[in-house]
Design a protein around this nucleic acid. Sequence first.
DNA 1: CAGTATCCTTCGTGATACTG
DNA 2: CAGTATCACGAAGGATACTG
Lengths: 133, 133
Amino acid sequence: MPAPPVGRTPSNGGPVPDVNDAMCPSRAILEHITSRWGVLVLAALLDRSYRFSELRRQVGGVSEKMLAQTLQTLERDGFVDRDAKPVIPPRVDYALTPLGREAAEQVWSLARWSERQVDTVREARAAYDEARA
Amino acid sequence: MPAPPVGRTPSNGGPVPDVNDAMCPSRAILEHITSRWGVLVLAALLDRSYRFSELRRQVGGVSEKMLAQTLQTLERDGFVDRDAKPVIPPRVDYALTPLGREAAEQVWSLARWSERQVDTVREARAAYDEARA
DNA sequence: CAGTATCCTTCGTGATACTG
DNA sequence: CAGTATCACGAAGGATACTG
């Protein structure tokens, strides 16, 4: 299937609703699950559910802001289930929904494929860089 | 984990040395093939090979700069084969390598899955937004 | 035709501080 | 503990003009 044609390219000037979001909703979904932290969060939750801080430790290097943002996006899309327990101190557990598990498995499979190609790709890059040095 | 400092930042695109190359090489690969234009380029080339301008028309809304940059990145990683014919006017054909075809098939499969979930996700979002309005 | 070079705007990300 | 608010900065991305 050919790529979806995009009508206009926003001439620089006005706040334009994301062209691809409007034109191609699936692009937004794909972006959410393949985003830098999205991949790692989904992968972590593939094992078991996590609390916020647990997840933050499990996914190394993510800021609170980005983790919260990533989780909200995934929750809104219906990939992650948020279970906030009304206790003090607050306790919130995050888990995959069935749909989220489907997504996680696929994206994780792609991630593992990428990992397997690391050496091949490194060689390709070396050859490419060599050819124009 | 602070982002490691990077040497040069070319004003123009081109295969930019990826910050994540050092810390997580597979992440860079994943990023290249799931990038906004990377997905679309790989998908288009799944059908057949294309010339630069053909590809630009096929993938609607991509600027020359981004298409060139995307193609260079994919070529450098060994996913795309660039065949520049020494004629005037210049003619360059782009095609998938076998490795690129593997990548394209997987990412396109994920993209099609995303497309199938569009309605489900839209409902999930509506429910989410409803719940906090 | 197939790109490069330059300039500029927008966006993502992180640091920090604060709240329930 | 689990977030939200604000700010600052570099990187991503686009428009345009130019070149072989």
